[in-house]
Amino acid sequence: MELIEWVGLILGITGFILITSLAWMIKKYHRIKPSIKIMSLFAIFIAPLLSLVVANYHVFETSKEVKSCMGCHVMLPMGIDMLDSNSTSLAARHYRNNWINKQECYSCHKDYGLNGTFKAKADGYRHLLTYVTHTYKEPIKYRGEFNINNCLQCHEGTSVFMKVEEHEPVIENIKKGAQNVSCLNCHGLAHPSSLRRTPGHPDYKMLTSPFSMTIKTKPENEIRDLKFFLTHLILNEKPKN
């Protein structure tokens, strides 16, 4: 477990102990002693506030992780495809080549700056609510347009990027304000196509089953961790290691 999770757990347990103690003391003494006031301050305000801050921070940070995105069943095809060493999608190629060391989904899907973070979190909240209320339809579709500046924030200016002459018209198009060229136009799909993610398609079962994956390159414990998580999520049981 990570440190933040330990902190949260301790705060939570402490808060629980304090509140139950407080409740017992009030019931016993029928009055608020000074020591109880101090305990109350801690139990009712400080501990919960700290817990809220810690929990908020924890959620903010863990929601950036791939595991968080994959927590929704409907996102499995993206995750499984990304981990598939035979896949040619952009997500899989980035993952396989270790071009993004962690938070693979968040790194591409968060726009620039505070606004980008806010938008990502707002989208995440919207996705969560849509998912738990089951008001989504498969295959899920990206709403609006993927912001290609998210690609450029890593790629633009690199020697590899600048060497490709075919990027010149793309940059001009962006500078012109037209912005109607997407990096995906030439570089292909980021994730499995919507057709393959449609229930009933021959590939759908494979894309929603973690056992179809063959993973290379990544550290063993990370692969195991992710695969474990996905398997646990689908089968609701621990796979044999």
């Binding site: 018209p169 109607n180 060229v181 997407s182 995906l184 136009n185 030439c186 799909l189």
Partner: peptide, 25 residues
């Protein structure tokens, strides 16, 4: 016509070239 994207379900699997990407122009 404001946007062009490769058709992900077509044979080209969403990939087009820079000329096709500028069909809107």
């Amino acid at each position: 016509l404001t946007r062009i994207r490769g058709d992900e379900n077509a044979h080209n699997k969403g990939v087009i070239c820079i000329k096709g990407a500028l069909l809107a122009e």
